[in-house]
Design a protein around this nucleic acid. Structure first.
Lengths: 144, 144
DNA sequence: ATAATTCATAGGAATGTGGTAGGAAATAAA
DNA sequence: TTTATTTCCTACCACATTCCTATGAATTAT
């Protein structure tokens, strides 16, 4: 019942891109350094976000990545689903696998459905902009 | 972000014990047959529940298992936590591992905390008695 | 005694996780 | 035009976890 590093790193990258956005592209090298994560591993993860159209890339020296849209247009759910896939606690209540043949007689499915709804309610109601705001609040608290 | 078969089977077994309770011990063989799960695998799982004191066992012919307490005294959370461990989406918000060293500066932890709370709210407010009730409702609907 | 059951432990195939490695392609800067 | 920097692509791999199977011992009703 864990979110893997893939999803967590994806979130951290998107947040990094949102926070350090200056109009110039941000290189993976910088992100990897700031977030203290293997650059090579981040390559693979951001490639998913790139193909999903969540970031734009520029190659060559001084190249790097941007967010395609503004932070409030990305929910945590969007980012996690791209990288983690469905967050359903069991396959049968997810959108990816069509559910099992015992679905009608199965009682526990009601539990999984409730968990699924609760999780989705959380992740679909937090945007990248919220994270940026929280980050800034933390920064302020530290400087006081 | 999945609940493994261990936790799901544990839940099904506890539910089976609750539903088919007649005062006589219920053998794993019967449960395995009804739930269509490998008996040998169920042995390992129920051993956890046994050590936790959630079921009582009787060895030998006509032996088997009982629930130690009445169904409304078990929450889904109790059962899942015994078998799955912590259901926290990341280790740092769980009760098992003490959290990482970046916890103070980390923003995403707020997300994981909210997910954790939401999941716990669901699983700690459903009892085995609820599942039994749902099961009976389903049975009635089918017979109509 | 016998047979049915739980209990304990070992093993193992398949899959997923969390990366590393190597190099090709693009491109800005020298 | 060369060089260095960056993204892009694919392959590989070690380790852990999951989901069992197998073997046999211990217990006990019949």
């Amino acid at each position: 019942m864990k979110v893997s590093t893939k999803g967590r790193y994806a979130l951290q990258m998107m947040l990094d891109l949102a926070i350090y956005n200056t109009g110039e592209p941000i290189s993976l090298k910088d992100i990897a350094k700031r977030q203290d994560i293997s650059e090579k591993y981040l390559e693979q993860i951001i490639s998913i976000l790139n193909k999903a159209g969540y970031v734009r890339s520029i190659r060559g020296p001084q190249g790097g990545y941007f967010l395609s849209k503004s932070p409030q247009e990305y929910t945590v759910g969007m980012i996690l689903r791209q990288t983690e896939g469905d967050l359903a606690p069991v396959a049968c209540v997810g959108t990816e696998n069509p559910g099992c043949e015992k679905i009608e007689e199965c009682v526990t499915v009601k539990i999984w459905q409730k968990i699924n709804d609760a999780v989705n309610d959380v992740i679909d109601n937090i945007t990248l902009a919220d994270l940026v705001e929280w980050q800034e609040e933390k920064a302020n608290n530290y400087s006081i």
